[in-house]
Design a protein around this nucleic acid. Structure first.
Lengths: 346, 346
DNA sequence: CTGAAAGCGCTAACAC
DNA sequence: GTGTTAGCGCTTTCAG
């Protein structure tokens, strides 16, 4: 049978309480006893039983990650970031993937019945109020990442800043006629990116030409899709001579579609029109897309850290952290053709 | 406090044993009692405590997925497949990502101490013998996916068949001078793909020209990298007039590198040289790469199913299942230019 | 068919 | 410092 604290207590000639204390790093165990217990434990190859532990202590040593399975993009990096902190937390990571944004609630409902976890990392989706209440009631700490909820700690990307930087980069490269290929303006990220875009233009004394701002009206994933990018780019292309010389695209995946449209039209990026994306998905590097990188690994890691803090200090005021995307210069903005110019900018 | 079986037992005026039986679908509960218990349970919003359950029954209702974090490719699809079956299993999915193939053992060592799981899904890596023994001893069922171990159920992709189909496709398109851009021949997949390639050629009465088979000697990820593809393609390109008209590439990621090399040389794919990849990673569709698709979602789902079977029948003989990759025709093999021809092939 | 009782392996409060 | 004890919430005999 499996070895229990009783076995090792008997063998080490101590009480089970002491054994338990040793394994919980309780201070009041003499050095001698501790090392003796530890010695016996390793000799007998003892492993604490997580469930017995959880049952007795009312902790689970596991956290739940609720992540969107429909965005393949950051997912991996985020999880890597989370996992890098897991051993600090001494925690298992239970994964729950949601296949479609509309399914969050029903998915959670099905899942919430099952596991009991010490905390939840909730990624990139709007937390249904029904569950927010439930978690608050149960005092289950929740960290919301790449999304926002007033009652929980949140980590977000500063979309406005990101779009501001992207636009500014193009301006510094000498572009005067700059467009925005945006997602569905109903979505918060799209609105924020629009604002950053506008700020950058007005800040530089450039006019905002309404015809050069194109929002997607696609209901699918708020227009953050390849196809939405493709369609909007076609609209830009139909402007012919009126076309912007550079376009800020609200996401890399849309930029992929835009690039396809540009190629199809027999034009070249960046020669005929420069592009700057947002996200830095894996594809971006292969397509040499200049983009605003979202620090996903870091966000995953910080999310785990934040949860750790929250577990320690349940009553601390909810925190809100903003990450600023970082400019990754590749080829689609044309900057790589002018090394000197980039250096001047930097 | 949380509601327990005691609460509902009292309320429904039965013993706790009966309540337990109801929730375990034990047959020997009268219909009347069962429905009464159920009614009370829903009214009191009762949730079984998974850890108490696990402790008493010696099951955990959770499975571990050990996956490589270093191949971003299939990962998501596999997990989706796994998850689609999870509710059948009534199981949580604990995720354990390994960052580098060399770290498998040390990663597991660190992790294995923690969680106790009903079963393990082990993906795309060689299972260290140390752990194989441990799992066998503990009678923890393991399903090995995209890899092989004699003691465990395994699901693999038939690389030889895949390469055979890929090569045959090129042959049917009329190519006579076909190359193989392979990975490190030390690795099993590379060897199998070579064999399929050779079989297809000889089967079609074509000679195998040694100079047209190029293995990567890169130690990094067995040569399944973009850079390895790039370098080998340069070797092909240096053949000039002797260059093959079509090349079977051992993986999509290598094909990405190969495409880059081709473009750099000012040549066009498929006009100057046709390419067919292997895997169907996300990039492949964006690059219009013809490829042999590995059915990752299906493998994930079947892995979960197989584990379910294994949990039911621990002593069944170990099974070995092979998946055959599927040809996905896009543009890099030139076939899309000849629709009729493709249809004739199909 | 159903109730009572004995654990599952561990934590934590309480004595000493 | 350390042993003892009472549960944590549930499953599973064992009687009846």
């Amino acid at each position: 049978m499996r070895v229990t604290i009783y076995d090792i207590a008997k063998e080490a000639d101590v009480g089970i309480g002491t054994v338990s204390r040793v394994f919980n790093n309780h201070p009041s165990v003499s050095h001698g006893t501790r090392s003796r217990v530890l010695e016996v434990a390793t000799r007998l190859n003892y492993r604490p039983h997580p469930y017995a532990r959880g049952l007795a202590s009312n902790r689970t040593n596991s956290i739940l990650a609720v992540i969107p399975f429909f965005t393949t993009f950051f997912f991996l990096e985020i999880l890597q970031g989370v996992q890098s902190k897991l051993s600090d937390l001494d925690c298992d990571l239970i994964l729950y993937g949601v296949n479609h944004p509309d399914q969050v609630a029903s998915s959670l409902r099905q899942n919430a019945l099952r596991s009991r976890v010490d905390g939840i990392l909730f990624f990139s989706m709007k937390m249904p109020e029904e569950f927010a209440l439930q978690y608050l009631q149960h005092r289950t700490p929740v960290i919301v990442v790449d999304s926002y909820h007033k009652s929980f700690d949140s980590l977000t990307v500063d979309n406005q800043e990101g779009a501001f930087h992207a636009t500014t980069h193009l301006i510094k490269l000498g572009h005067k006629r700059i467009g925005l290929l945006n997602a569905n303006i109903e979505s918060a990220p799209a609105r924020e990116r629009l604002k950053g875009f506008q700020n950058a233009l007005t800040g530089a004394g450039l006019a905002i030409v309404p015809g050069l701002v194109k929002n997607s009206s696609s209901p699918i994933l708020d227009g953050f899709t390849r196809n939405a990018g493709y369609e909007l780019m076609k609209q830009f292309l139909s402007l012919k001579g009126e076309m912007p010389t550079a376009i800020v695209v609200a996401s890399d995946i849309q930029a992929v579609g835009a690039l396809a449209a540009i190629n199809e039209a027999g034009l070249k990026c960046p020669d005929d029109v420069a592009l700057i994306g947002f996200d830095d998905i894996e594809l971006a590097s292969h397509l040499e897309l200049t983009t605003m990188r979202q620090p996903m690994y870091e966000m995953g890691a910080l999310a785990a850290d934040t949860l750790a803090d929250r577990l320690k200090n349940p009553k601390e005021k909810v925190s809100q952290t903003k990450f600023v995307p970082k400019l990754i210069v590749r080829k689609t903005c044309g900057a790589s053709m002018h090394r000197k110019q980039i250096e001047a900018i930097a």
